[in-house]
Amino acid sequence: MTWEDVLPVDWFLDRHDRRVPTALRRDNRDYLARHSSASADQLADAELIAEEMLANAIDHSDGPIWVSLEWSGPHPVLTVRDMGATFALPEQVPDTAQHRGRGLWLISQLAPEFSVAARRVGKAVESVLPVARPIEPIDPPRHTVNPLPHLSEAAPRGAFGRESFLRALVVQLANAVEVQQGPDAAQRAIAQVAVDIGGQVELEYRQATEISGAALSAEQIADCVVRLKTAIGGSFRVVEVTDERIVLVNGQCPFGPEVQLSPSLCRMTTSVFGGIAARNTGRAAVTLEERIALGDPGCRVVIHLGDAAANATRAHHYTAAP
Rank of each mutant, 00 (worst) to 15 (best):
M1K: 02
M1N: 02
M1S: 10
L7S: 11
L7C: 06
P8A: 08
D10L: 12
R15G: 00
R15A: 06
D17I: 10
L24F: 05
R26A: 10
R29A: 04
Y31T: 10
L32G: 08
Q42H: 05
L43I: 03
L43S: 03
D45W: 02
A46N: 01
E47Q: 12
L48H: 05
I49E: 01
M53K: 00
A55P: 00
A57L: 02
H60M: 07
S61F: 05
S61L: 02
G63I: 07
I65E: 03
W71L: 12
G73S: 13
V77G: 01
V77R: 00
L78H: 02
T79F: 00
V80F: 02
V80D: 01
R81C: 04
M83N: 02
P90R: 01
P90A: 02
P90G: 02
V93F: 15
P94C: 07
A97S: 12
Q98M: 14
G101H: 06
G103R: 02
L104G: 08
L104D: 05
L104P: 01
I107C: 00
V116M: 03
A118Q: 12
V125M: 03
S127I: 04
R133V: 00
P134M: 11
R142D: 05
H143Q: 14
H143V: 13
T144M: 08
L151V: 08
F160P: 01
F160D: 00
E163M: 14
E163L: 15
F165I: 08
L166T: 06
V170D: 15
Q172V: 13
Q172A: 12
A174V: 12
N175R: 12
Q180E: 14
A186K: 05
Q187C: 09
Q187N: 12
I190Q: 10
A191S: 11
V193K: 10
V195L: 10
D196E: 12
D196F: 01
V201A: 06
E202C: 06
E204T: 14
Y205S: 12
Q207M: 15
Q207W: 13
A208T: 08
E210G: 11
I211Y: 08
S212F: 11
A215S: 15
I221S: 07
D223T: 13
D223I: 07
C224T: 10
V225F: 01
K229M: 07
G234N: 06
G234Q: 09
V238I: 13
V239M: 04
T242E: 04
T242F: 02
L248P: 04
V249C: 05
N250A: 04
G251T: 04
G251L: 06
Q252A: 14
E258S: 03
V259F: 09
Q260Y: 00
Q260D: 00
P263K: 10
L265Y: 05
M268P: 05
T269P: 02
F273K: 08
F273S: 03
G274Y: 06
G274E: 12
G275N: 08
A277L: 09
N280P: 13
L288K: 02
L288T: 00
L288E: 03
A293D: 14
L294K: 13
G295C: 11
P297Y: 00
P297I: 08
C299V: 11
I303N: 09
H304K: 08
G306W: 09
N311Q: 13
N311L: 09
A312W: 11
A315L: 10
T319F: 14
T319D: 02
T319V: 14
P322F: 11
P322H: 07
